[in-house]
Structure formats: structure tokens, C-alpha cells
């Protein structure tokens, strides 16, 4: 946690921000924006790009009548142009205590990824919303657009700490339900979490599925979680859950370690299956992968950035 604070001011370096300027958040769907932006919309509108003709009806703006066509055909036709709108990018960050674990720390890693994605969204005049959650949504920064709110966004992220408390454990289902209610504007939702949730994953994703949103999930795991031997998990141990204080007594043997790894793999597979079933894009990353590599390489490969 100390590391989280100490390195908070280094969530993004100037050099890295320069590299991010070339990227934009991509959506797999054509979503409706709220205000005019840089992204093509389903609506016809005010841009310079010609789209179609239609017959004139009473009440139409006379400025859009194609007078040349009227001269030739003696009929009134209206010229239609493409509309460009902004994109809503919602970054949802898990700040349960389970995220404040591992070396490199998962929460710090997640905050960096969130900062990078938020920065990209803001530089392209997208509407960026930030949410943090533990057992429910704990904090949010909404409606940021353009370069101006970048410091605000970074400050918001830097200020996020893992939620202390014995019984504050993640409840993804209630979080997703609440998010669906708050985030009515269609857009891209990026969910950053370790997904160590004891509830039902399918139930949670149900609220975010559908055509309204384009949802990406990024599962973050610490190297110590992937291979417990790296975390000195050996011998006869009393394992205590950092979130809910749950106890598991184990005598770690090679067979048990094998079983744990198989379970982890099966669990990640389960999360991925549930995501794909709901049309949610799924990515997994270990925190020992440099986050620059994740942003510049893997997220581009998966189509979130372009």
C-alpha cells in the first residue's frame, strides 16, 4: 500500500502520455453519443461528409435543399450529411482489498491502466467516466471530456485506496446492477478487477450484457497468485483471506499446488466463458507484465485501442 502512495504521482509519465496520444478507444459497436464529437454516429447530421438525399418535407431546413437538383428535376431534395458524436468511456476499477496484493501490486497496476485508458479517452474528446467499487460503487468521477480534466482524473485515481474493513468483500453482481442504473448513456465499459468474487459471475455480467454497452473486462493476477511457491506458500499453513478473513488450513504439498493451479486455470476459463457468452471481451494479465506493454501492445491487439 505504501508503494501505491509513493508511486501515485507516477501513474503516467510524460513520455508515456506522448505515446498514448496516438491511440484512441475503439468500440466494436456504433454507439449513440451525447454531444458532437469525433466519432461517426448512426444519426445523420452536421458534418461535411455527404451521406444521402431524401425528399423535402415541410419544416425541413431550407439551407440543406440541393438547388441544383431542383433546377434539373423541378423537385425539392434535401442533402443529408454524416453525424459525428462523442463516445462514452467508463472505466470501472476494483478497489477491494484483494486488489491490494501481490508484487507488483495489482491495485497500482490497475490504476495505471485506468489512467492510461482515461487519458486516451480524454485526448479524443470522449466522455470519460471513472468508477471504483468494493462491495458497491464507492466513488465516481463523471462527465470528463477534453484535455482539461486530465489532472482531475489522475488525482481521482491517485486518491483511490483499497477499502479497509473486515467484511468489505467484493460483490460484483450488485456493482454491475448499480452501474447499469447509473450509466444510462451507451458506451464502452472497461472493467478492471481480479474477479476473485465468491458470488455468481454470470449473474453480474447479465446487467452489462446486451447491445447498449461495449464491455471489456481485464482480469489482473499477481504472479504470487499464479504460482504460490513464489509467495512462500509452503508447509503447513493457515491461509487467511485478505478480504473477508476466511481461513483455510492447508498442508501444502506438490499435489495440492498442482490442484490449485488447475483450479486457477479452470476459474479463469470460467470467467472467460461467462464473458464471451454475454458478448463481453475478456483479457487476462499478470502484473509482472509491464503495464506499458499491456496498454501499447495487448490492448491494441484485442481491439480496445487503435
Amino acid at each position: 500500500m505504501a508503494e501505491t502512495i509513493a508511486q501515485a504521482d507516477k501513474l503516467l509519465t510524460a513520455e508515456f502520455m506522448h505515446q498514448l496520444d496516438k491511440l484512441d478507444v475503439m468500440s466494436r459497436k456504433m454507439l449513440r453519443g451525447k454531444t458532437q464529437g469525433e466519432r461517426r454516429s448512426k444519426k445523420k447530421g452536421q458534418s461535411v461528409e455527404f451521406a444521402d438525399y431524401r425528399s423535402y418535407v415541410v419544416g425541413d431546413d431550407l439551407r440543406h435543399i440541393d438547388w441544383n437538383l431542383y433546377a434539373r428535376l423541378d423537385k425539392l431534395f434535401l442533402r443529408l450529411f454524416m453525424e459525428e458524436e462523442d463516445l462514452s468511456v467508463s472505466i470501472v476499477l476494483d478497489i477491494t482489498k484483494s486488489m491490494d496484493f501481490g508484487e507488483p501490486n495489482k491495485l497500482l497496476y490497475a490504476k495505471r491502466v485506468a489512467a492510461a485508458l482515461g487519458y486516451i479517452g480524454l485526448t479524443h474528446y470522449n466522455r470519460v467516466n471513472l468508477y471504483t467499487f468494493a462491495d458497491t460503487i464507492t466513488d465516481m468521477a463523471l462527465g470528463m471530456r477534453g484535455r482539461r480534466p486530465i489532472p482531475r482524473m489522475l488525482k481521482f485515481l491517485e486518491g483511490q485506496q483499497a477499502i479497509e474493513g473486515e467484511h468489505v468483500s467484493g460483490n460484483l453482481a450488485s456493482v454491475c446492477k448499480r452501474l447499469a442504473m447509473i450509466q444510462r448513456q451507451p458506451g464502452v465499459i472497461i472493467l478492471l478487477s481480479d474477479f476473485f468474487d465468491k458470488g455468481d459471475m454470470a449473474d453480474a455480467l447479465r446487467y452489462l450484457g446486451g447491445d447498449k454497452h461495449d464491455v471489456y473486462t481485464i482480469q489482473l493476477l499477481a504472479p504470487q497468485e499464479v504460482d504460490p511457491a513464489k509467495g512462500n506458500i509452503l508447509g503447513d499453513l493457515r491461509l487467511r483471506d485478505i478480504e473477508d478473513g476466511d481461513i483455510a488450513e492447508v498442508s501444502v504439498s506438490p499435489a495440492l499446488l498442482r490442484r490449485y493451479k488447475a483450479n486457477l486455470q479452470a476459474y479463469c476459463h470460467h470467467v472467460r466463458e461467462q464473458c464471451l457468452k454475454r458478448g463481453v471481451a475478456y483479457m487476462i494479465s499478470e502484473t509482472d507484465v509491464p503495464f506499458e506493454t499491456l496498454v501499447l501492445k495487448y490492448l491494441r491487439q484485442r481491439g480496445l485501442l487503435g
Binding site: F101, D194, F196, N232, L237, R238, E249, A255, Y260, N263
Partner: peptide, 22 residues
């Protein structure tokens, strides 16, 4: 006499223990 270790989640361990029926 077990050593106590904090981990991010006992979710997977419990499942593993159940599997092993330890």
C-alpha cells in the same frame, strides 16, 4: 502449528482442499 499467511482470496484454495479432501 500452522503459520498464518495472508492471501488475496481463499476461493481457489478451498476448492483445491475440497478436491484433495485433506
Amino acid at each position: 502449528r500452522r503459520r498464518q499467511v495472508m492471501i488475496s482470496s481463499t476461493l481457489l484454495w478451498k476448492k483445491a482442499i475440497q478436491d484433495m479432501q485433506v
